[in-house]
């Protein structure tokens, strides 16, 4: 039993360590509010703001031509008022010194007209490889545990020739 537990733990550790490797250890996060302006806060995963990062905004009706360009302030903040006549997904590129990221903000007509608060945060979506491996190991362990439970409750088998 102990061997099985150790083997499963080793499996999880081994597979987890062979998972994703992050380019340059940087992650950009955003906080977006709509009231009725869109406010962005761009920072690295260290918490350091993307001071003076370049910002390019693309409107939904022309995704190839910049609708607005600008720079974040010293705290990595940037805000603008989208054109209310252009509902759809507004796309914003933020980049600085070789690091960049996209932000996609869907704004429907009702939001554009009412200007009521929508809050979106950029971040992880889905599961990483390591998370999937860990979850898979947990599922397998769940099966094993269930089997062992019922195995332990099974009455001892009768010996051959024993009276019923």
């Amino acid at each position: 039993m102990r061997r099985i537990i150790i083997l499963l733990l080793l499996l999880v550790i081994a597979l987890g360590s062979a998972g994703a490797v992050w380019a340059h250890g940087v992650k950009i996060t955003y906080t977006v509010t709509f009231s009725p302006t869109i406010a962005i806060e761009a920072a690295y995963d260290t918490g350091e703001p993307m001071a003076n990062a370049q910002v390019i905004v693309y409107a939904p009706d022309d995704p190839k031509t910049p609708w607005l360009t600008g720079e974040c302030d010293d705290d990595g903040r940037f805000s603008f008022s989208p054109d209310p006549s252009k509902p759809g997904t507004w796309e914003i590129q933020v980049r600085q010194a070789g690091h960049g990221e996209w932000l996609k903000i869907p704004l429907d007509e009702e939001m554009m007209q009412s200007g009521q608060g929508v809050v979106t945060e950029g971040g992880d979506e889905g599961f990483s490889t390591a998370q999937i491996v860990l979850m898979s190991a947990c599922v397998i362990w769940g099966f094993v545990g269930t089997a062992l439970f019922f195995q332990s409750r099974r009455p001892p088998a009768q010996e051959p020739g024993e009276a019923a």
Binding site: A18, A20, V21, W22, A23, E101, W102
Partner: peptide
């Protein structure tokens, strides 16, 4: 060894590297 997986980008956009 740690740097080499970070070479691949799309412009200035980072990539996910699968060992």
């Amino acid at each position: 060894v740690d740097i080499l997986p970070t070479l691949g980008h799309v412009g200035e956009g980072h990539c996910h590297e699968v060992q």
